[in-house]
Nucleic acid binder design. Structure first.
Ligand SMILES: [Zn+2]
Ligand SMILES: [Zn+2]
Ligand SMILES: [Zn+2]
Ligand SMILES: [Zn+2]
Lengths: 154, 154
DNA sequence: CTTGACCTTAGAGTTGGCTCTAAGCTTATA
DNA sequence: TATAAGCTTAGAGCCAACTCTAAGGTCAAG
């Protein structure tokens, strides 16, 4: 039976994150000590590792919840349900890639047009393109709200 | 002189968003009526359109702020400053694309391995891969926090 | 028997870019 | 003149997935 920080070092999730996942129904400690400490058995650890793997792939916590409910009774669920979740995620990823590639293309064109030198930006072609709005940004408009965030840790 | 909703329909930004941008220093109404209504002149409109174009490309509001401060005095800034901002953005975009492509690859492999049929998920290869953690998710781990958000409107 | 590492909880804060609400004032139209 | 549409403000809420804080309880080592 592992304590929360031991589960943390085994899975690479912080105790904070483990409690957060518990609050959202993803992970549970099958036992608690009298003083309230969480204790995780092998089955709990396997579930937590499943969550970690799914998260690393990029599934949302909501997706992971669905995958977990399939996991607890596989006879009640089909391969199709699993592929539906996976394909939906892949569709999202593909859409996002397309948006980012549109941004990439636009930014590259802008960079190619500008000398990038130390002279005054008076005739800078990037500035001119932005002024004139003659920028091929089709597809990029929807892309950038949350496109460039990061997660710090593993 | 345009009122805020007129500037909105000209630029495709909502009045709410215009006020939000004003609060963040991107856009200003050069005049106010006695009753406090914002009035935008041609120069204001051009600035707002610049902001809209830059936003559509994918620049952050912070980036746009920097571009705007170059715009107001181009003699005091160089092409290099402009390309630095642009290149930095391109680097972010490229990094994000790489992460998403890693996710894409993993998801595609999972999908290829599963029959996707109506039978019970007992021997589902996607579930097995998630259980075993033998999933090639290198690079995807950092990717997904904010990767799949959306902005609704233009 | 004290130190320090670890555990508990509820709840607030972070990020970026909006998006909306409430409560009230102004303006245009019929 | 009445009604509706539009404007003002400060400030709250939203999204996801954490991340941290405060204030306290627990436990093993020396
Ligand atoms: Zn130049
Ligand atoms: Zn230039
Ligand atoms: Zn199957
Ligand atoms: Zn399957």
């Amino acid at each position: 039976m592992l304590k929360i920080s031991e589960l943390g070092s085994r899975t690479g999730l912080s105790p904070h994150t483990i409690r957060f996942y518990e609050k959202h129904g993803l992970i549970k400690a099958s036992e608690r000590s009298e003083s309230g400490y969480r204790y995780y058995n092998d089955s709990d650890v396997r579930r937590a590792e499943f969550v970690k793997t799914a998260r690393n792939i990029g599934f949302s916590l909501d997706d992971i919840g669905q995958l977990l409910s399939i996991r607890v009774d596989k006879t009640a669920h089909s391969c199709q349900e699993v592929t539906d979740i996976t394909r939906h995620k892949l569709d999202e990823v593909n859409a996002k890639i397309a948006e980012l590639q549109s941004m990439q293309k636009t930014l590259q064109l802008l960079l190619d047009s500008c000398c990038g030198g130390p002279e005054q930006a008076i005739h800078c072609s990037i500035m001119e393109a932005l002024e004139d709005g003659n920028v091929d940004a089709s597809g990029a408009a929807k892309a950038h709200k949350t496109v460039l965030g990061k997660r710090a840790k593993s």
